[in-house]
Amino acid sequence: MRLSSLLPLLLLFGAAAQAQSPTYGVGRTPTASEIAAWDISISPTGEELPPGSGTVDKGSELFLSKGCAGCHGTTGTGGLAPRLVKLDVAADADPWDYGRVLPIRSPYATTVWDFINRGMPLGAEGTLTPDEVYSLTAYLFFLNGLLPDGSTLDRESLPKMRMPNRDNWAQVPDWLPGKPRLEGYPY
């Protein structure tokens, strides 16, 4: 048997061996609570969402009291910051004609929760409680006609929300080293 035909096998065992034991032993192991405190990423399936809940009503109050309206406009549009309510188009319009508006264009409700939680409000980022983030998210969905008035959102209901572009976006292609960006594209 030639060495080259053994190579994949050797690589496989090599990789397995590497996966089993660290090579350098540098760095320390974080505690579970430490990881939980650092980890603010929310996946589309929402398993990291914290307990708590929020309502459209509370969200509409927070939108004013937390200063959101100051940058985004009292109705979610007309401010210096990006608009938060879809463009005024026909009821049967293509969802991509609603504009580049996070709480309506995003395929996942979790993206909205995640960004409010990590990046808002300006100057006091990361200070909102989970309940407040659920409320503000619910309010933005209400403004965009995705939730009726009086609705509640929590860790169970949020990831289940059906966003208009849920299956209507282009997945980024599999990236492989040494491959052109797009097969058949000359440039």
């Binding site: 990423s41 929310i42 996946s43 589309p44 399936t45 991509w96 996070l102 264009r105 995003s106 395929p107 996942y108 979790t110 993206t111 995640d114 960004f115 990590r118 990046g119 572009n165 209507n168 976006w169 282009a170 997945q171 980024v172 292609p173 990236w175 960006r181 797009l182 594209y185």
Partner: peptide, 25 residues
């Protein structure tokens, strides 16, 4: 992780045109 997380930065790349998605990367 085991999935595309669609972070706010990722949302900036969001398109429904697969050609645009492939080239904007």
């Amino acid at each position: 992780v085991d999935q595309y997380y669609m972070t706010y930065n990722d949302f900036g790349h969001l398109t429904r045109d697969p050609v645009n998605a492939a080239l904007g990367y």
